[in-house]
C-alpha cells in the first residue's frame, strides 16, 4: 500500500464521518429546537453582564427573561441605571420614567479607631462572626466593627477598609447595587442621593454621657445642631440627630457647631 492510498482512505473515512455527524447535528437542531424569545437575547445584550444579583434574580440572564415576561420592572437593574432602563424600554416598547439621581452609600459611623475596644478579638475576620461573641468588640454597640463584611459583599471592589478601620466607598466604582447595605449587621450603610450633602455620621442611640466616654466622634444628642439650623431640618430622637433632606439647604451651620464633629459634608 503506498502513501497516496493511505492518504485517500484516511481523508475519505474522516470526511465521511464528519458528513454523517454533521447531518445528525443539523437534524437534531431542527427536531429538538427550543423556542426562545428573541427579545430575551436583545435585553441580555444591553444588560451590564456583571451577574451581581442586585436585582434579586440569579443573574442577568434570569433578569432578562423575567423582564420580558413582565415579572420584573424595567427599572430592576440598579447597576445599569437610567441608561439600561432606557434601552430595555426601547426594546420592549415600554414607557421610560424620568432619570433618577444616582444614589451612593454612606457609612453612618466615624468611630473606627476613635472608638475604644472592650476586648482583644482573635477570631474569624467578619463583622457578623464578631457579633456572635457578645455584641462586637467595640464599646459602642451601634458602631462599625471594621471587619470588612461589606468589602466582601461588594462585587465591584468599591469598598476598602481605610487606616481608621472604617469602610471607604469609591463612588467611581460603586454601581449603587445596595449589596453592602444589606450586608452590614449594624445597618450602618444607607443609600442617599448625591444632592443630599449633609449627613450625621453616627448611629448610636446610647446616652450622651456614655457615647462621650467611649467615642470621640459619636453623636451625644446635645441638640446644638437642631437649635442652630435655620431651616429647622434637624431633629434629635433618642440621642441621635437626624437630618430631613427635604428641608436641608446644606448651609453648613450645624457642621461648624457640632462639638463632636459628627456631622459632615459628603465627599
Amino acid at each position: 500500500m503506498n502513501t497516496t492510498t493511505i492518504l485517500i482512505q484516511a481523508i475519505a473515512a474522516l470526511g465521511g464521518l464528519a458528513m454523517v455527524i454533521g447531518i445528525v447535528l443539523v437534524m437534531a437542531s431542527k427536531v429538538f429546537k427550543v423556542e426562545t424569545n428573541p427579545l430575551v437575547d436583545e435585553v441580555l445584550d444591553v444588560l451590564p453582564g456583571a451577574n451581581c444579583g442586585a436585582c434579586g434574580y440569579a443573574g442577568c440572564g434570569e433578569f432578562a427573561e423575567q423582564v420580558v415576561e413582565d415579572n420584573a420592572p424595567i427599572t430592576g437593574c440598579p447597576l445599569g441605571g437610567f441608561e439600561v432602563e432606557e434601552k430595555i424600554g426601547g426594546i420592549l416598547g415600554k414607557e421610560v420614567g424620568g432619570e433618577e439621581e444616582p444614589e451612593y452609600p454612606i457609612v453612618h459611623c466615624k468611630g473606627g479607631t476613635n472608638c475604644t475596644d472592650r476586648f482583644n478579638y482573635i477570631g474569624v475576620e467578619d463583622c457578623k462572626a464578631v457579633m456572635l461573641l457578645s455584641e462586637g468588640e467595640k464599646e459602642c454597640n451601634y458602631g462599625c466593627m471594621g471587619r470588612g463584611t461589606c468589602v466582601r459583599a461588594c462585587p465591584f471592589g468599591a469598598i476598602i477598609i481605610d487606616e481608621n478601620k472604617l469602610p471607604k466607598i469609591n463612588n467611581n466604582l460603586c454601581t449603587s447595587c445596595g449589596l453592602c447595605v444589606a450586608s452590614c449587621p449594624n445597618d450602618l450603610i444607607t443609600l442617599s442621593a448625591i444632592s443630599e450633602k449633609v449627613h450625621v455620621l453616627c448611629n448610636s442611640h446610647d446616652k450622651g454621657k456614655f457615647v462621650k466616654s467611649v467615642c470621640s466622634t459619636g453623636c451625644i444628642g446635645c441638640k446644638l445642631c437642631a437649635k442652630v439650623c435655620p431651616e429647622d431640618a434637624i431633629k434629635v430622637t433618642k440621642f441621635l440627630a437626624e437630618i430631613d433632606p427635604e428641608k436641608c439647604t446644606a448651609c453648613g451651620d450645624c457642621i461648624e457647631k457640632c462639638p463632636q464633629n459628627t456631622i459632615e459634608f459628603r465627599d
Binding site: 477570631g123 474569624v124 467578619d126 457578623k128 462572626a129 456572635l132 461573641l133
Partner: peptide, 13 residues
C-alpha cells in the same frame, strides 16, 4: 483555625 466559631456562624445564618 477558628473552626468552632465558623460553624456556629453557619448555624446561626
Amino acid at each position: 483555625r477558628h473552626i468552632l466559631q465558623l460553624i456556629k456562624y453557619a448555624k446561626v445564618s
